[in-house]
Design a protein around this nucleic acid. Sequence first.
DNA 1: GTAAGCAGTATCCCAAAGGATACCACTATA
DNA 2: TATAGTGGTATCCTTTGGGATACTGCTTAC
Lengths: 134, 134
Amino acid sequence: MSKIPETASPSVGGLRPSHSAADCSQSSQAVQDALYVLSGKWKLPIIVALSGGPRRFGELQRLVSGITAKMLSKELKELEMNEFAIRRVYATMPVTVEYELTEYSQSLNSIIEALRDWGIQHRARILGKDSVKA
Amino acid sequence: MSKIPETASPSVGGLRPSHSAADCSQSSQAVQDALYVLSGKWKLPIIVALSGGPRRFGELQRLVSGITAKMLSKELKELEMNEFAIRRVYATMPVTVEYELTEYSQSLNSIIEALRDWGIQHRARILGKDSVKA
DNA sequence: GTAAGCAGTATCCCAAAGGATACCACTATA
DNA sequence: TATAGTGGTATCCTTTGGGATACTGCTTAC
């Protein structure tokens, strides 16, 4: 279930392993940890889709275009493990399931902001160079 | 050479493709772009190793412990493409090659800081829960 | 003469990530 | 009675990331 390799201590959602203990600075390790929980093709898109409020599984699958049920299911489990999302089951017929971002997921905001700002200026920079080239 | 898929426009270092145009917000796309240039196992460790000043290939391979020549070579090329590093060849015998971070690479600092800060508190949080569990 | 260091490249291989498709049990609707 | 929608799982397959190993051509040191 957990993605923690042998060397790591057991933990809630998992931390990336040191690829070689204490050789990179611990700050580098922290960066790797953060990058790790956001890695993969779908985590951010799902978080964005959930940022508008609780969503059901099928809704999410429609919102995050291109994702398969398998990947959505898998990524939601990881988001749950990392305590970024919670899963609520309602005893309707048929059962409905809602996913919602946790308060802790808000702690990612500064990262997401930094990534977004940089991404925007980087894209502008690249497109600018393209037009010069053309 | 470039990692740009068919759908994307030609660009300096490459941007991640929209997996489906204009359905996710552009801010989500920007986040993906940023995540993309930092992805992989070695980019950050290499950037960290270079942050102390220019380094030769062999030096880097020793500094970034565990990396193979193949991966180092590949990652350095990508860092060059994204204009995070420059490669300088000196006509010594045998030739020496130096890699150095560019000014543009400094633009990543706010991202790296955000990732580091979050990573540190996340690790503390997880280890805290572990000790409660134990 | 041979080993080691310079900066890589080439080839092969394995494991992880991710996509396609089929399927589960159940119900309301057409 | 068939179809679509509820929330997924199981299986198979391809693609990608990355590691291991060998090798290049040149030079200095042993």
